[in-house]
Nucleic acid binder design. Structure first.
Lengths: 118, 118
DNA sequence: CCGTTGTTCAACCTCGGGGTTGAATACTGC
DNA sequence: GCAGTATTCAACCCCGAGGTTGAACAACGG
């Protein structure tokens, strides 16, 4: 599992990590703060954060002996790009299928403009 | 791992499965067709498809003895919704931070310009 | 009816993810 | 320097994911 996208998806496949991301979206937090609501050890949470970090979803800064975790927003773009690409492709397929069916139904009247292909 | 979103992310965490999704976005395909380019067994591919199916990403129809796999586009919406939600939240934070800094900058020059640590 | 093709089921193996606990490390504040 | 706090490292356990092979189960096609 070396590629970035795999790491990102894998990181978000865990509900606990998704919850952390949700909380970090609201504000930065330290490991202990993050661990507090859950009934797992702080070490476990630290590992989770490492997973998120390796995926590029968060960054750990350094501030005294604390290591506040900060959500890195850019990665979302990576996912969105991947998802949207195939979503569009599928929608395109549907559109063409519709066109095909429409064309067969009434062999005339050309459907128009698609546009907006990003 | 019961919840939908976890299944979806986990399903897409595998590069092979993502590749299948990519191919399925272009067109439906059977297990054997899907398995052909890879050097894993057909059984393994069948398992992968099951994972995608359990996540609601694909559907298997029935057509003679073949079981064409069809990509289900709606799930993408689920992911996009999740992602966008937190992306927006983070952007909102940045926006408010900018406002705050702009406001404080006017009062005095004690702002300590963090940031720029990339 | 029987062989062929497409697909899944079953048993098995290995490896890594997520959890634990206990010790080490990195800073702070006195 | 030393106690105290925050975090990570290390070693360990357990289980599920992904791979294999071999057999079973459809559904055609002769």
């Amino acid at each position: 599992m070396e590629d970035r996208l795999s790491k990102v998806f894998a990181a978000l496949a865990d509900p606990l990590r998704r919850d952390m991301v949700a909380r970090l979206a609201a504000d930065d937090a330290t490991v202990n703060e993050l661990a507090e609501p859950y009934d797992v050890s702080v070490q476990a949470v630290s590992k989770h954060i490492k997973v998120l970090e390796d995926a590029g979803l968060v960054r750990r800064s350094r501030q005294a002996q604390r290591r506040p975790v900060h959500l890195e927003a850019e990665v979302f773009d990576l996912m969105t790009a991947w998802i949207e690409r195939y979503r569009r492709q599928v929608e395109e397929r549907y559109r063409r299928l519709d066109d095909l069916l429409a064309g067969e139904a009434r062999s005339d009247t050309d459907t128009d403009t698609e546009g907006a292909a990003s």
